[in-house]
Simulated scan of single mutants.
Amino acid sequence: MADSLSEDDILEAVARHIGRPGQGPQLRRTGVDITRLPMLDLRIVRCVETRGTRQETRPGKYDISGRPTYEGELRDHPVQPPKDPAESRKVELVLHGSVRTVACGCDEGRQPCSRCRAKGKLPCETGPLCPACKGVEPCTWCDGTGERQDRAPAGPSGEKNSPGRTTCLKCRRPRTACPQCRGWGTEKCTRCDDTGFRVCPVCAGERSTEHTSCDGTGLVTLWTGGSVAHAPERSAVKLPDPAPPLRVRQRTGRTGAWERVTLTSVGEPVPDALDPAHVEAVEKALLPRPDEVARRADIGWLHLVAVAIPDDPDHVFYVFPGSDGPEVLPIWSRRRSLRIAAVVAGVVVLVLLVAALV
């Protein structure tokens, strides 16, 4: 476990970094500013459990003998959570004694066809109009109806017979029908052979179809099912806030000698080595959640220090424990960043002015 850096260790590490080894005490006399920024990385994975019951139905004689059973209330049935809290899992259960196979209530696995309404056939649209009579006068006797139509007499006998006409297929009257459609008024329909009806494509004329609820078996299996689901719920706490510069976070993540511990139970005490400024935040984050049945909390902390030297106002020196002793990472100070930003802005303005004059 890495220890917290003392001020002497910090100043000596900075002195070595700036090429003045052994002059840590002299840096103290120059009025250096040492700011401690302890870093915390807390990641929690909670296993949250949800339970529920429902009525289940399956067609036919459905075999559920392989499922575990429970008795009484599902909330009282013990189910072990997964060993890894990050694992998702769902356990399906059956209430003991609730399984039964009953008649479906259909007609031996059949149900009336909904497409043709149990008639076995569907109306068929008539074919195209006869190209000869256009459907206007297919038969002078019945007009394609098969029965005599009331109309004024067309000749001495009251009938409009014509040698060019033929016997009507509907009323059977000779020499009254169009010779091409023979009294139908339309061309012959190939789908229904001019019967006016076609076989229902759903039931194939059987008037009934297989009952889907029972798969045509006439039976259904019923039971009360219960499910216990475990799902991971993640949260994290990172301190300090605001966070150190990105370069510092990246460097400490790669080479920092972080102290770490893993907690797996509710109520486990936080590590004694944790910075006192972080204890309250960690304890609050570790409070149990509703329906939490397992957890894993990975806690990491690192002693980070920011050092400002009056002799070098352009840098802030970040010091932290590394694997081979204290490491130092210089970062531009706010003062230098603002000065550079001002220079860049001035150059941009100058370029714009020159461009405007050209």
Rank of each mutant, 00 (worst) to 15 (best):
G226F: 01
L286T: 11
V220H: 03
A118D: 11
D143I: 00
T30Y: 04
I340N: 12
G105S: 01
P276M: 14
G24D: 09
G52F: 08
P330R: 08
A118Y: 06
G196V: 10
V282G: 03
V344Q: 11
G31I: 04
G216W: 09
C116N: 08
P313T: 05
D314M: 08
S98G: 02
L222W: 05
C214A: 05
R54I: 00
R175F: 08
P242M: 09
A273Q: 13
P59Y: 11
E280W: 02
T57G: 03
A229T: 14
P326Y: 07
A103F: 08
T264N: 13
A294N: 06
L95K: 13
H303L: 04
L169M: 11
M39C: 14
R249T: 14
P123Q: 07
T262H: 02
R67F: 15
G97Y: 11
V79A: 02
K121W: 12
E233F: 09
F317A: 06
P179R: 07
S323Y: 02
S162L: 13
Y70K: 02
S213W: 02
V94R: 07
D194P: 04
S4H: 14
H278V: 07
A355D: 07
P242L: 05
C181L: 09
S157L: 15
H315F: 12
R296Y: 04
G66F: 04
A86T: 04
T69R: 15
T101E: 09
R296Q: 14
L219P: 03
C113M: 04
V279F: 01
V351D: 03
A132M: 07
T217Y: 03
D8L: 13
R249N: 04
P156H: 12
D143P: 00
T252S: 12
V266D: 15
T224A: 03
S157P: 00
T264C: 03
L246H: 14
C104P: 02
A15S: 10
V45Q: 06
A13E: 10
P128Q: 12
L302A: 12
R260W: 09
C113E: 09
G19K: 08
